[in-house]
Design a protein around this nucleic acid. Structure first.
Lengths: 127, 127
DNA sequence: TATCTGTTATATTATATGTATAACAGATAG
DNA sequence: CTATCTGTTATACATATAATATAACAGATA
């Protein structure tokens, strides 16, 4: 099964970031399981019509963050050991990202319940 | 009362974005109330040791997003009518931001409860 | 008049993004 | 052995963003 990638070339979000997010979402949804193979940088680039180096940048970061392994022989593979569990560093990064989102939501009259319910709804997407 | 601004010049987050976030956080916490004045672009720039145009960029975006008003005479003022309530456009943008955060958190073994509790804890900071 | 305001215009430097082309070394299939 | 595919590295180029630096203008104010 091939994960279908959908890019928005007009978006402010860089292409390599969109690619990363969709692969991570694929893992979260279970469409990509530990050990599953991913297309080579060249074929992925050809498939979605972008440059080899843009794919490579996404892959390198996914490797750096523990989502995938890249073997010279076996190619690109979803980390068979699973992704490293959330540690303090990750939680700290997450909080730094969430903080301004919550601040703005409060300014715009969203209360805690509304926000949490929205998050809860997003969690339901991954199951 | 002057809102104290704390910048990290080493951060990946652009300076004007840090400034925006801290002003929005000030509003969310009630340190800045509707009608309160903000320093002029020049004095704010001098206070925190950055360029006038960097402050101006933050102010222009805050104005564009409805957080502040800029009068030729009265100077810079927190929107006296309050910020525009969350509409569908805002919720859609918020979802686009939260989606990849939740995907990665799931990959890293955080379940829904853990994530919601973390958000809840952040909400408590604004009261 | 002098000063402060927001605003606009230019210019420069540095970094990020994306593409293009090329090459190298290891593995594999014919 | 040859040809092909792999990840990887190196350069180069174009564009956009971020941040700074000066400078100027017009309106308001002391």
């Amino acid at each position: 099964m091939t994960l279908l990638i959908n890019l928005d070339l007009e978006s402010d979000e860089p292409i390599y970031t969109q690619l990363k997010h969709q692969i991570i979402a694929g893992i979260a949804k279970g469409l990509l399981k530990p050990g599953d193979g991913l297309p080579s940088v060249r074929s992925m680039a050809a498939d979605i019509g972008i440059n080899l180096h843009t794919v490579n940048k996404a892959y390198q970061q996914l490797k750096q963050e523990g989502f995938i392994l890249i073997h010279r022989q076996k190619g690109v593979v979803v980390n068979p050991d699973g992704v490293q569990q959330a540690d303090e560093e990750y939680r700290s990064k997450l909080i730094k990202t969430l903080h301004p989102l919550i601040a703005e939501s409060l300014c715009r009259g969203m209360n805690e319940d509304e926000f949490l319910q929205l998050c809860s709804r997003l969690f339901k997407e991954f199951s």
